[in-house]
Design a protein around this nucleic acid. Structure first.
Length: 505
RNA sequence: GGCGGCAUGGCCAAGUGGUAAGGCAGAGGACUGCAAAUCCUCCAUCCCCGGUUCGAAUCCGGGUGCCGCCUCCA
């Protein structure tokens, strides 16, 4: 089976091509570490985590590189604002990013290069670009010692393929855009972009042939990708908003510097939206990953972000999160029930039986793989889980039916296998169920709160009424509990209650 | 202004030529003192108009609506 991807360069679905058979080199643009990451970032890295997992499971030896941009105007501004060094800020934010990604079960890339540790490579690439006639040097900022440092620009007009990825001509760029971009007389063309920026007072800087300064925004990815994956590598990925100018510029720089192809295929994921509008820092309509994880389990957020195809926009809303939560919880509850039952029957290991594989599971396994190989169609992959889950439900409902235990064991084993592809449903089920319930309980009925005391009071009252077979009073108590968001359940083990998991009311 | 994307049941969402996956909600049933949870069953002809084709949600043309990029952005 071949993996097919939507290649942004051709705008078509085509087979994933690897330069070296059996090996896949993957570069994903990482974050600029000046703040906590938001849900839009979460989507990118979860999507490409699934890409990476799928490729590995299809037998490819994957080298996954994801950078940190740790030098940038916004970082400098934020560090000043916070009264800390850029280094302190970026170190903190990288740690926070790792923490977020770990919670979301995104596997770590093989290499996570930082701009600040790749200055020699960056400077060398800029020198190459200049040497080959695609870059030029102009006077920049006056330095403390009175000298004038230099800026370096990429000369877009010397690179005819410019615009191929984003599908725009250089003339297009000149028009509408130019009125919003401040005119710079030093540039040959207003579309030219900075390769190296001379240092302003108080900014962090690195020494270079052009004086003290720092790299422009795009060059770091060209340099780090070439260093860690080679001048030509397989796939370069990122959010759709990076197509232009970031990726367009990366291509121009790398190819201008070394004459090689750079990334052979490109993948871009769609935005997370709110009310159909892009979630972004500039619009201010974003939620950080931490904001969301304070209310929803990481598996719920991950599941939600995989419910739409990665190339499409995905609308973020409480309602969607709650729907995802409902589904994730239901599946983990079934897994918990399966585990309990199998343990009780001494079949805890599961999936190691001699019975022939159930056709249903076999089909689902094939569909899961087909779906993911077909351009990482996660909605289809999630749908493939439904039939086995339905079979599991039925078997759990009638565990004494012929073959029921076998179904339970096999579906459980299948879900465990699916979790390797999707990064979902691999956690100890009772832990997840308890975490989700506890999160809602602590929100609605914090420990020691009057709300919690009220629930306990009503529960006692209902118990007394029930003992006296006073159904009217018992129902009143239950209605009152429902009213405040506590759902009562009578079971053979006695009465339990759960906080309402949705946020209505 | 230039370039591009999307429009499927109440909501979310797959599906690129052969008669609409899946999830949530809803309805009916089982279970329950009543409920909840759980289980079973049911529930769309694909924005509008025209065209191509034996046959289109899927291709072409024209509308309408929404969104994105062109400035920092995942």
């Amino acid at each position: 089976m071949q993996i097919r991807i939507t290649n942004s360069l051709t705008r078509q679905k085509e087979p994933l091509r690897t330069l070296v058979p059996g090996k896949l080199s993957l570069y994903v643009c990482g974050v600029t570490v000046y703040d906590f990451s938001h849900v839009g970032h979460a989507r990118v890295y979860i999507v490409f985590d699934v890409v990476q997992r799928t490729a590995r499971r299809m037998g490819l030896d994957v080298t996954y590189v994801r950078n940190f941009t740790d030098v940038d105007d916004k970082i400098i501004a934020r560090a000043n604002q916070n009264g800390e060094t850029t280094d302190a800020l970026t170190t903190r934010m990288i740690a926070a990013f790792h923490e977020d990604m770990d919670r979301l079960d995104c596997e770590r890339p093989q290499v996570e290069p930082r701009v600040t540790t790749h200055m020699p490579e960056i400077v060398a690439m800029i020198e190459q670009i200049i040497a080959r006639g695609h870059g030029y040097v102009v006077p920049g900022e006056v330095q403390a010692d009175g000298s004038i440092a230099q800026d370096v620009y990429f000369d877009v007009r010397t690179f005819p393929p410019y615009g191929a990825l984003s599908g725009r001509s250089q003339d297009d760029n000149a028009d509408g855009a130019s009125e919003r971009v401040q005119h710079d007389a030093r540039k040959h063309s207003q579309a030219d972009f900075a390769l190296w920026k001379s240092a302003k007072p108080g900014e962090p800087f690195w020494n270079s042939p052009w004086g003290n300064g720092r790299p422009g925004w795009h060059i770091e990815c060209s340099a780090m990708a070439c260093k860690h994956l080679g001048e030509t590598f397989d796939v370069h990925c990122g959010g759709k908003d990076l197509v232009f100018p970031h990726h367009e510029n990366e291509i121009a720089q790398a190819r201008a510097a070394n004459g090689q192809e750079f990334a052979r295929q490109w993948m871009h994921n769609g935005f997370v939206t709110i009310d159909s509008e892009k979630m972004s820092k500039s619009l201010g309509n974003f939620f950080t990953i931490r904001d969301v994880l304070a209310r929803f389990h990481p598996q719920v957020l991950r599941y939600f972000l995989l419910t739409a195809h990665y190339t499409h926009p995905l609308n973020f809303s409480d309602r969607s999160l709650e729907e995802a939560q409902k589904r994730v919880l239901a599946i983990y509850e079934k897994l918990a029930a399966a585990e309990a039952l199998l343990t009780a029957r001494g079949m805890a290991s599961g999936g190691q039986m001699d019975e022939p594989e159930l056709e249903l599971v076999e089909n689902a396994r094939g569909e899961l793989q087909d779906a993911l190989c077909d351009d990482f169609n996660t909605p289809r992959a999630l749908a493939a889980l439904s039939e086995p889950i339905a079979a599991l439900s039925l078997a759990l409902d009638k565990p004494k039916a012929a073959g029921a235990l076998d179904v339970i064991a096999q579906v459980r084993a299948f879900l465990h296998e699916a979790s390797g592809w999707l990064g979902l449903f691999q956690h100890p089920p009772t832990t997840v169920v308890e975490a989700i319930v506890a999160q809602a309980r602590d929100r609605l009925f914090p420990p020691g709160s009057e709300a919690l005391a009220n629930v306990e009071r009503l529960l006692v009252e209902r118990q007394e009424a029930r003992a006296a077979k006073d159904w009217k009073r018992a129902d009143e108590a239950r209605d009152a509990l429902t009213q405040v968001g506590a759902e009562v359940r009578d079971g053979p083990q006695g009465t339990t209650w759960r906080p309402r998991l949705t946020d209505e009311a």
